[in-house]
């Protein structure tokens, strides 16, 4: 078990700055997801932690030991790769045993640990098969078992579920969470899938443009995004942003006055689709409904607030028709205010 300190890590590829002074502390036993769109630097950061890539400056400290200059094999970690990287010329048993064999563990110990990891991932039945005979999901289990068999202090996972189909992904996600909780391993998990990050992680680090925009628990990051990007990247539908003018601590949309941060000026009002409710008498913020999509569990309404695109989630029983103007009531405490110029959230007064 170990904590991880990522200290002002910079990585450049030619003139492109892939990581700009990224710092992050991961506590012992914690599960942190690095979440972001492709090209945000999350995989580069993971590969630098693993030692597969060399940082241009900054330090990586694992369990109090500076590993910045160490080879991957000396860092005491295990990794699960996006395309599994399960060795095709070895049986499942030998794959899971690989790390133990490198540690020169005794034969009995290898057998015992492989069997335990295999049982954890439910692959006991395939130990003498070759990976080519396994499905994608089974290969992924082998890759995870191989990583857990060495009982690593730190486990790194690079989009481990992205090659699986949607149903299998959901199943593996649940299982992974249970397995990793039991193992208690410090885990860094790279993904571009927000539901994976939300469901699995103790904390999420949202990355964008080579930096971490925000780090916090899933609910913090979801409810109080630190930047416009975080609000727009998390949630389905994403957070709505309505441009408003803020003067003397009040912003007006239609007849509704909302308290806004004292700083004032051109701001964007961040509103989660489910944080607005339909007013019974049509009062409140006017919302022009253009499309109504019944999603089963809810209605997804797409329309305009003050002429700006917005998506609102309504109860499945609501009676709303396209072309109608409805009124929305919002809880001011659940609104996010974004400075129009910087794109960063502004604290409420």
């Amino acid at each position: 078990m170990a904590d991880i300190v990522i200290d002002r890590v910079v990585k450049e590829f030619g003139s492109f700055r892939a990581l700009q002074e990224v710092s992050l502390n991961v506590r012992d036993g914690e599960f942190v997801a690095l979440l972001g769109p492709s090209g945000c630097g999350k995989t580069t950061l993971l590969r630098i932690i693993a030692g597969l890539e060399k940082q241009d400056s900054g330090r990586i400290v694992i369990g109090g030991r500076d590993v910045s200059e160490l080879a991957p094999r000396k860092r005491g970690l295990a990794m699960v790769f996006q395309n599994y990287a399960v060795f095709p010329h070895m049986t499942v048993f030998e794959n899971v045993a690989f790390g133990l064999r490198m540690q020169k563990v005794t034969q009995d110990e290898v057998k015992r640990k492989v069997e335990r990891a295999a049982a954890l991932l439910h692959i006991e039945g395939y130990l003498d098969r070759y990976p080519a005979k396994l499905s994608g999901g089974q290969r992924q289990r082998v890759a995870v078992a191989r990583a857990l068999a060495v009982e690593p202090a730190v486990l790194l996972m690079d989009e481990p579920l992205s090659n699986l189909d949607a149903l299998l992904r959901l199943e593996m996600r649940t299982e992974l969470k249970a397995v990793l909780r039991e193992a208690g391993t410090t885990t860094i998990y790279v993904t571009h899938d927000q539901t994976e990050a939300m469901g699995l992680a103790d904390r999420i680090a949202v990355m964008y443009g080579g930096r971490i925009d925000q780090i916090g628990t899933p609910l913090e990051v979801y409810a109080t995004p630190a930047t416009r990007f975080v609000g727009g990247f998390l949630g389905s539908p994403p957070m709505n942003f309505i441009k408003v003018r803020c003067a003397q601590g009040t912003a007006r949309i239609g007849d509704t006055a909302l308290p806004c941060p004292a700083a004032g000026g051109e701001m964007e009002l961040g509103l989660r689709g489910e944080d607005a409710s339909l007013a019974s008498n049509g009062s409140g913020i006017p919302f022009d409904v253009r499309v109504v999509e019944p999603m089963g569990s809810h209605l997804l309404l797409t329309g305009a607030i003050d002429g700006q695109l917005a998506r609102i989630v309504a109860p499945p029983t609501a009676t709303v028709t396209a072309g109608e103007r409805v009124g929305l009531t919002v809880d001011p405490a659940r609104l996010t205010w974004i400075d129009g110029a910087t794109g960063r959230a502004v604290a409420r007064a």
């Binding site: 693993a50 597969l52 080879a71 991957p72 094999r73 970690l77 295990a78 990794m79 790769f81 395309n83 990287a85 060795f87 690989f98 790390g99 490198m102 540690q103 191989r146 060495v150």
Partner: peptide, 11 residues
């Protein structure tokens, strides 16, 4: 990735 995985696992 095969070589990288082997390297991570101590080879």
């Amino acid at each position: 990735e095969f070589s990288e995985a082997a390297e991570i696992f101590g080879a």
